[in-house]
Amino acid sequence: MPPESRIPPLLQPYTRLPKHPSLFLLTGTLGATANWLIIRFLCDVLATKNGSRAAENDKAGDEVGEGGTAVVLVSWIREYEFWRNEARKGAGLDLQRLGNEKRVAFVDGLSRMYMPEVGKQSITQNTVLTTPQTQNMVTARTPARMTPWTPPAPLMSTSEAKSDNKGYFFLHTPDLKAFEETVMSATAYLESSSRPPKSILLILDAPDTLLATEPGITPSALASTILQLHAKMLHAIVHVSADDALLSLSMPPQPLEISGHNFLVGMAHGSKRVISCRVLDTGVAKDVSGVLRITGGAGGGFSELFGEDEERVEARELLYLVKGDGSVKVFERGAGEG
């Protein structure tokens, strides 16, 4: 199956990145995460092999002989193995190969976060410590319809991963400065390719965990860092959880709730498209994983002064079903398998 056809037809207009610089906001809840959606974005960007789609894009007047879009994927609550498996299963993409080809860089914000500074010799011990913990987290966040993640038989230690996989970076501290520098070095890695990418797509998976784990980080500082990175690249996709428990205020309001709310609302005010996943309002259904709502967001630059913005999407709601084999079906209400 060619990777492009992994994106359901109804979803295709929304996973296509616009010509102009853009910031997209994806939200999910505990019962309906947007991982599969991130994979679809990866699929849309990385499936372009200077082939049919690239030719299609070139008619917009792009430079000839340049590479396509490269991706920096930063994940705070899911580790590389998860994304590698999901990408292989859901999109038929080999992240490892793409990493070697300098088209994907992965920034791991989970495995070594909050770990004591370790020398090179103690890395193996470190790996033993982290692995069981991360496994648990991964299974907990996976949608119920998907088969739980099973670790590959020869468990790759993180040190191996680093030496084998180029384009694999770690975050050691929640410090925003370090985060920015790591992303910049990941970008530098992608740009050192023989055919430097035309544009870079930055995908941030759950940056809101930083607000929870590090009380010193304010939502405005986090948003500011994200926007600064976005200004250096062309496109950015931010995945944030939108569970009520994280956003609604209890009495008296907790600082974390205010931070979470303000971060999400602030990002929505800056983003051009908001795609939110949530569970079905009417309860659990066998043939529906959740509801997908696509709205126009509040952002978008003023690069075009007149309202003839053909990239603007109509707000709409669709249903989706993530199947066990990682494929996704997206359909209108009432048009399910039945």
């Binding site: 999910g28 939110s276 996943c277 709205t295 509040a298």
Partner: peptide, 11 residues
């Protein structure tokens, strides 16, 4: 509903 960020009739 839980998980909704923006209304469909917004903007």
């Amino acid at each position: 509903a839980e998980g909704v960020v923006q209304s469909l009739t917004a903007a």
